[in-house]
Amino acid sequence: MNADRLYAYVGVVLFAMAMYAFLTHTHLLRRLLAFNVMGGGTFLILVGLAQDGRGPDPVPQALVLTGIVVAVSATALAIILLRRWFALSRSTALPEDQS
């Protein structure tokens, strides 16, 4: 197994684990963390699988670079929405998740 493929498999494990956390947590900030870890796993799969022992590949790397910047802005935006929601409802979970 080459290093690239190893990291692709690590990405798969991260994705599945974070998906479980995303589906089970009700705290919105925890969901945001899980969503970010899912993104990280996806990035690892993208780059690792495209390279797969054939040396660095600038195309997926550039795509992932774009992805990282979009991910951080989406995270920041989600935090703003979450804080607004918290200011209005005093809750860190969505209404349908409050049991």
Partner: peptide, 23 residues
């Protein structure tokens, strides 16, 4: 390790720095 120094730079600045401050 994946020979992607650009991504390493971005991840270090964004993933560790900015996201940490935000969260």
């Amino acid at each position: 390790r994946l020979q992607a120094p650009d991504l390493a730079l971005a991840e270090a600045a964004i993933g560790a720095g900015l996201t940490g401050a935000l969260l």
